[in-house]
Simulated assay, not measured.
Amino acid sequence: MKNEFFSYNSRLGIHLPRFSKEWHSYSSEEQELILLEWERVRGMIPDRIQEVEVEIERLQGELAQEENFERSCMINGEISERASEINDLWIWYRTNPEKTQRGIM
């Protein structure tokens, strides 16, 4: 199931929907399976966000101790990337597709 309709996104650390056709082209049963799996994945997103927040806190601690300007810039870049991951995770978390007669996601 995951391999057919979802693929792992290493940047975000979760599986994301990956469709080979338009949502309305999937059968009602396929839509139901996809939505069930999405709810499972979606339920893991807050935990994933918390993991990234812990990483940001660690990086901020490292930044506070860093005296090398170039290394400080690199750490700031890493913090920015992690913050971007959190934003993307929240966007995916708020994605709440619905099953319809022939579906629209």
Rank of each mutant, 00 (worst) to 15 (best):
Leu35Phe: 00
Asn3Asp: 10
Leu12Ala: 00
Val41Arg: 05
Ile86Lys: 02
Gln101Ser: 13
Ile86Leu: 00
Lys21Trp: 00
Ser28Glu: 15
Glu67Lys: 12
Ile34Tyr: 09
Gly13Gln: 05
Phe19Val: 07
Ser20Gln: 10
Asn9Leu: 07
Lys2Cys: 10
Arg82Thr: 10
Phe6Gly: 05
Met44Ala: 12
Leu16Lys: 00
Lys99Glu: 06
Tyr26Val: 00
Glu98Phe: 07
Leu89Arg: 00
Arg48His: 06
Glu78Val: 10
Arg48Ala: 00
Met44Cys: 10
Glu55Leu: 14
Asp88Thr: 03
Glu81Ala: 15
Glu85Val: 10
Ser7Trp: 09
Lys2Pro: 09
Arg18Trp: 08
Glu67Ala: 10
Arg102Asn: 14
Tyr93Val: 05
Lys99Ala: 05
His24Phe: 15
Ile91Tyr: 07
Asn96Trp: 01
Met74His: 13
Tyr26Ser: 00
Leu89Met: 01
Gln65Gly: 03
Glu67Pro: 03
Pro97His: 03
Asn87Val: 13
Asp88Pro: 00
Glu66Asp: 08
Glu32Ser: 11
Ile75Thr: 09
Asn87Gly: 13
Pro97Cys: 03
Ile34Met: 09
Gln101Lys: 15
Glu37Ile: 04
Ser20Cys: 11
Pro46His: 00
Gly103Glu: 08
Met1Val: 08
Glu57Tyr: 04
Ser84Gln: 12
Tyr93His: 04
Gln65Asp: 08
Ser80Phe: 12
Ser84Val: 02
Glu70Met: 12
His24Cys: 11
Lys21Ala: 02
Pro97Val: 04
Gln65Ala: 14
Tyr26Phe: 09
Thr95Met: 07
Arg18Lys: 10
Phe5Met: 06
Ile104Phe: 08
Gly43Ser: 01
Trp23Ser: 05
Ala83Lys: 15
Ser80Thr: 11
Ser80Lys: 11
Glu67Met: 11
Gln31His: 13
Glu85Cys: 09
Phe19Gly: 08
Tyr8His: 01
Lys99Leu: 02
Ile75Cys: 05
Cys73Val: 13
Arg42Ser: 02
Ile79His: 08
Ile86Pro: 06
Gln31Ala: 10
Glu57Met: 07
Val54Tyr: 04
Met44Val: 06
Asn9His: 04
Asp47Tyr: 11
Arg71Gln: 07
Leu12Pro: 06
Glu4Phe: 11
